[in-house]
Design a binder for these strands. Structure first.
Lengths: 152, 152
DNA sequence: GCAAATCCGAGTGATGCGGTCGGAATGGAA
DNA sequence: TTCCATTCCGACCGCATCACTCGGATTTGC
């Protein structure tokens, strides 16, 4: 259950792009320094985001990157999938592919439920939500229960 | 967002233990063949589970492993934490430890919300639930929405 | 004392993570 | 047409983690 640096960077980069003026593209160096991300790694990530259709790019001077869609139509799930693949995997397989036998049979449903609850957050929250500082209220409700902040 | 083989094996092993008679301990080889887990790896895992207090053990002939607590008081979260550490990490840190600045500031709350929703499943489902094939109804509700089984 | 089991730590091959680097292609301006 | 800023692309690299294995040492029951 680990969010990689790449996924974290990807989301932050996209959020940063959402905060820019729509007219002109944003340079990699800009985004990198704004979000404190290693430049050449970010270059890498943005290329991946482009080939997944999340961002567009322009070469040459005055070039750079911008969002391919309006920020309020782009979910965090889309961004993360673009760089990490499937949201959740169990031993490298998707939850619906794995099979258990015997007393652990119900386990598959647990993983499915897990993924469903992950999606509830990541599919709903858009890049615009994060950039604008206004998360959906049911997501916010999850963070308000103070036990949510406890370590365990 | 990846569930490792170790975590999967740990849960299955514990579920298998829950399905045994309470009187006598269960041998590693038994559990391994029942759940199709590599024996020496499982040995490893059970040792970890024991040092976390999830299972107890007995050495010598007639020895083996059994649950340290009633199966209906043991959550999947406890088992997973015993072998994997914290349930969710972002770039190796816990969600409440990381700090963002600028336009990505709200991201921390997203990760917190994510974890909260993960916990909703893993803290609630007990080993007894899985072994008995009766998951809590709100967890089951998550799997009933047919979109839960879709790939995306 | 013997045999059956757990205990324990070290080791191992493959894979992925978190980047870096060197150029090639592209586009705008002079 | 010639710079030069920028993206594009693939290769590479060190390190950690993953998924295991192995060889004994220790405990326990008979």
């Amino acid at each position: 259950m680990h969010v990689t640096a790449k996924a974290d960077y990807a989301v932050r980069a996209v959020v940063e792009l959402a905060g820019s003026s729509q007219g002109s593209p944003r340079k990699v160096d800009d985004v990198a320094t704004a979000q404190n991300i290693p430049v050449s790694f970010l270059e890498n990530i943005l290329t991946q985001l482009r080939s997944s259709g999340v961002v567009r790019s322009q070469r040459g001077p005055e070039g750079g990157y911008w969002l391919a869609q309006p920020a309020d139509e782009l979910s965090l799930a889309q961004v993360i999938r673009a760089v990490e693949g499937p949201l959740v995997g169990v031993r490298g397989q998707r939850p619906e592919e794995i099979e258990y036998s015997g007393s652990a049979e119900q386990l598959q449903q647990v993983w499915i439920a897990l993924r469903a609850n992950l999606r509830k957050v990541l599919e709903e929250v858009t890049v615009a939500d994060v950039a604008g500082g206004k998360l959906p209220k049911d997501v916010l409700a999850l963070t308000n229960a103070e036990e949510a902040w406890q370590t365990r």
